[in-house]
Nucleic acid binder design. Structure first.
Lengths: 236, 236
DNA sequence: GTCTATACCGTGATAGAC
DNA sequence: GTCTATCACGGTATAGAC
């Protein structure tokens, strides 16, 4: 099994991120803390501006609206993480070309798990709380953010699709798409700490521990993605 | 593979559900339609009471608050569905006792898939929209609803846990708990139509089609739950 | 018990002075 | 760029009619 500890360094962010004024940065920092703790609707602009020690109207000046502020908070954390995913895929394809040209399912899975694990462990980039914020975006259906992700990072999904397709050459492209859809669904919600069973007060897992998540989610997803169509797991 | 079409009839609801006055029922119906279409925060009580043709204050009289109204809307649809799940588990254990006393993983999975599939196909009980509403509850962490689910339906999770434990006798109880956690995560979000890849505009699956969901999610989850700890799928 | 009218305070947004 | 004042709308509480 591949190690989870080899994390490629992320690109230098200072040269790529948009520059914010001091007040805008203070707003972003305060908003991130509060959004992550209380959620989008539950945090008011008055709370944010008070914590940031700026005027209420400054939010609507620097960002256009509360929704746009949320998008800015999100994009600031998402971009460097997505670049980590791209680097993983680059490295995987480089290894594949240098070797026999083959890709196995677990390697593709690790191209997502490694950056997600690293992010969960790094509070300076939002940590696990950012992943939870991400999952809120998924079920609420943020129009602006959807367009941004689609425009800026749509090719990232295409890269994962291509890699998984090479790892599962016997499956049709529709089946590969479903495996990717289902696999990412588990991994994403696992790292987000979304625990349905806990809603019933009966969860027996530590769903927020990144090490345990990796330990259990990787074999589950690899087996699920590698399954044959009749429901029986394929031979290794 | 088991058929998805054999759906046991649900219990007679009229004798078990709490009785609402006419105005309360009208509020519930209008609230359900609007919550499902626009979400919880985006629908105002003034919208609801206008559609229901009742006074604004009637909401606070019959239900205590907007949140409590949401809980009532939710509980009305959830209870009959959860009973279907219980009937599935009862039938599974009856079959097991009549046979060799063994349970296979797919049978446990189908005890969730069949009711979820039936619900997705039945608009009169909320349909797929209710499942999406359920997924909102998961990430938003509704306190009241959490307590209700824990109190009223905690034993349902215990039943699934016991069944899966019998299907996977070689795994530790911690491993069984993780398999259940991850498996339910995929199934739940699959039926809820939550599609992360679609956020990036690159989803190649029809994530809202119940027939396709069943077709692809069952082999995936069965293989994932049956995986060995080292990531290789086990032989059938 | 059931329903209604109305007032209260906090919210996001905006116009215009500085 | 920044701030004050103001707006319409949100959920909620209550007094009182029937």
């Amino acid at each position: 099994m591949e190690s989870v500890k080899s994390i490629p360094p992320s690109a230098d962010e200072s040269t790529l991120e948009p520059k914010y004024s001091d007040t805008a940065t203070r707003i972003l920092d305060a908003a991130e803390r509060l959004f992550v703790e209380f959620g989008l609707e539950a945090t008011s602009l008055r709370q944010i501006t008070q914590q940031a020690a700026v005027n209420l109207a400054a939010v609507n000046y620097h960002f256009r609206s509360k929704d746009a502020l949320f998008d800015a908070v999100f994009a600031r954390r998402f971009a460097p993480w997505a670049r980590d995913c791209l680097h993983e895929l680059d490295a995987l394809e480089a290894r594949s070309s240098a070797g026999h040209g083959t890709i196995d399912v677990e390697s593709v899975v690790m191209c997502y798990v490694r950056p997600a694990f690293a992010l969960s462990k790094d509070p300076s980039r939002g940590g696990a709380l950012f992943v939870r914020l991400f999952s809120r975006v998924l079920v609420e259906n943020h129009r602006q953010l959807r367009e941004r992700l689609s425009h800026d990072w749509g090719h990232l999904v295409a890269r994962y699709t291509a890699a998984l397709g090479r790892a599962l050459p016997r499956l049709s492209s529709e089946e590969v798409a479903w495996r990717l859809h289902l696999g990412f669904s588990v991994m994403f919600h696992a790292f987000a700490g979304n625990d349905i069973l806990k809603l019933f007060g009966r969860s027996a897992v530590s769903a927020r521990d990144p090490d345990l998540i990796v330990k259990h989610v990787v074999p589950f997803v690899v087996a699920g993605m590698s399954a044959t169509a009749d429901g029986k797991p394929s031979a290794a």
